Amino acid sequence: MKGLDNKRIAVAASRKADTISILLEKKGGKPIPYPIQGEMELHEQTSFQNVRDLVEQPFEWVVLTTGIGSKTLTQAAANNALHNAFFEKLKQTNIAIRGSKTMSWLKENELSPTIVTEDGTMETLLHDLERRKSPESYNRLFLQAYNQDDAVWKDALEDLGFTVYLSQPYAYKRPDEQVTRDLRQEIIKQSIDAVLFTSKTQVQNLFEKQGDHQLVHSFNDQVLAVAVGKVTAKELEKQGIVHVLQPETPKMGAMVVELDNYYRQKTRT
């Protein structure tokens, strides 16, 4: 008997939701798609302006927070004859990153970071930057972010003494409101066994209403919250969810295996 037999698993992801669903089905689960990520919107003109400012202005640090953002800036540089100047500037500047996808982008482009966060979170990245901040320079910092928590991180960095240039090469549109409402009702009624989250954006979209105690109660009662990694897990915990299941390696396949093992172990006990 498979660990996910007869388990109804909601999938909150939009990107690669089909892949996750196939993995769940192979373990005996019944995946139910509730894509609440929201469609990604690239800001081409903003990206071009960001790249040009990075190339032309002095910066001690470049902070790259997502692989998608790094790739979008790269494409903007290539589209506007700034490819060589963009990468030359990155080679001359301290780079701080979070996340495995950003690290993969660096390796692909033969760039070496000065700071890589151990746990992939912005909180740790802020701590690492504070320790490396130079008292002898203006500490101008280029922050690649997007429309989730960008102002929070900008303010936090400025509180540490950095002068921050905020780059927003992309954003996420609002998800379909009906899909979000349907998922909320499934959770509140506890008619599903678990919800799989692959980003903190999905968590924030689900918990958009402040003080939603019904959702929190359901997660803390019977509905299992599953996160692909630490950043997503922390966002769930911030909402008041006591138990969040997550794999040691932040990968979709590892997340499904962890979920399967969880139910297998629960069956034995």
Rank of each mutant, 00 (worst) to 15 (best):
H127G: 13
F87C: 02
Y165N: 02
M1G: 03
G161D: 11
K27L: 05
H43D: 10
P169Q: 09
A76Q: 07
D119V: 08
R15K: 09
P175T: 06
S191Q: 13
G29S: 04
V51I: 12
H127T: 15
G211T: 05
A145E: 04
A96F: 11
K154H: 03
P169A: 04
E130Y: 00
L160E: 06
G67Y: 10
L160D: 09
L64R: 01
G69T: 07
S104V: 14
N139V: 11
R268K: 15
A10P: 07
L259E: 07
A156G: 05
E108Q: 08
R131T: 14
L206V: 09
Q92H: 08
V63F: 01
A156Y: 03
V244S: 04
A96G: 15
E237F: 08
N147M: 13
V55C: 05
E56Y: 15
A12C: 13
V55E: 04
K16N: 15
E158H: 02
R268F: 14
E258F: 00
T114L: 06
T72S: 12
H213D: 12
I95S: 07
G99F: 11
V11K: 00
G161Y: 00
Q168M: 08
Q214P: 05
P135R: 04
E258Q: 06
L157Q: 01
V62P: 06
K26I: 00
K2T: 11
N220M: 11
T163F: 00
Q239E: 13
S112H: 13
V11E: 02
V226K: 01
Q178E: 08
V223Y: 10
T102D: 12
Q178C: 09
K251I: 07
K2N: 14
I97Y: 04
D260Q: 00
T74A: 06
G38M: 07
L111E: 02
E56A: 15
T72C: 10
K173D: 07
S100C: 02
D18N: 11
D182E: 13
E60F: 02
F197M: 12
K30A: 01
Q190D: 10
N139F: 07
T102W: 04
P135T: 01
K16P: 03
E130H: 01
V55D: 05
A77I: 10
T117W: 08
E60V: 01
Q57K: 10
D150R: 12
